[in-house]
Nucleic acid binder design. Structure first.
Lengths: 145, 145
DNA sequence: TATACTATTGCAACTTCTTGCAATAAGGAA
DNA sequence: TTCCTTATTGCAAGAAGTTGCAATAGTATA
């Protein structure tokens, strides 16, 4: 619980408030470590703060992602998941078949982002990206067909 | 209308059937040219085939995207959009502020995909990717603040 | 500590998306 | 053409995500 409070000064610096709802939401994201869907966050955080509602979860996740406290990612299908941004800067590579997931270091994309900025005129390209492919295991299985 | 029928042989080759619903859906995607949300496809295609239902639209778009007849993309917020894959192989770069959108040639990402395949062991990485940044216009505006 | 400002919440209603299942209709074979 | 197989559809119900607004409660200030 306390661990979530360390964000309080940073939130306030941006004109945001540290409410018990936000403490609960940050807490479950911290405890879980990985990424969670809004529904998962809602179910888990509700145990800590029973009066929590769904709109609050959605609005909070979106707000905190906008302010870079959280990373938002698509993991297929069109559903969003969120994770704490503090951990590190990475991207995702997910197997189309079995959903096995590995992380891509941000360094691997930095050069591309630089090139895109130069060629497009756009700036501050820092998207959190998810790639899809076939993992080694599923490559073998498909060969067997 | 006829233009959509050219897909029929390709669909059949994959065990899919060319129904009037699919003709209508492909037709609106063809007419519009760009990408459309499932709701937009539903509203437009319903004019051609009034008995069309939402589940059919969602299932069809997903199926056709899976078979590579369509490209699925996230354009922020977590909503999916679809466009005909035939046009060309490209990716998107969208302005975080004003939503202005430009296309990125696939060639710009090919090297990265190759590197990722080598380093990860994953194969057939060909994701349709959307990047976010600040367009030239919005960079100026933000400077003025 | 009390006050005032306003960010945030909960509620209720709504839109968007998904799922299971029985009925329908493409399209290959006779 | 007719029959048969089974992919596809529509329906109905439900899950997930969104929005507007009035009430609540953080937090800065006095």
């Amino acid at each position: 619980m306390t661990c979530s409070l360390k964000y309080a000064p940073q939130l306030r610096a941006q004109g945001l408030r540290m409410t018990p709802q936000r403490v609960a939401i940050l807490h479950v994201l911290h405890q879980t470590g990985g990424h969670l869907s809004p529904t998962q966050v809602y179910e888990l955080a509700r145990k800590e703060h029973p009066s929590l509602t769904e709109p609050t979860v959605y609005r909070t996740l979106e707000e905190l992602a906008e302010r870079k406290f959280l990373l938002a990612a698509h993991v297929g299908s069109g559903r969003m998941v969120y994770e704490l941004a503090e951990n590190h800067n990475h991207h995702h590579l997910i197997c189309r078949e079995c959903r096995a997931e590995i992380q891509i270091e941000h360094a691997a994309l930095e050069k591309l982002f630089g090139e895109l900025e130069t060629s497009s005129g756009y700036r501050f390209i820092d998207s959190h990206v998810t790639f899809f492919g076939l993992c080694p295991k599923c490559q073998k299985i498909n060969k067997g067909d």
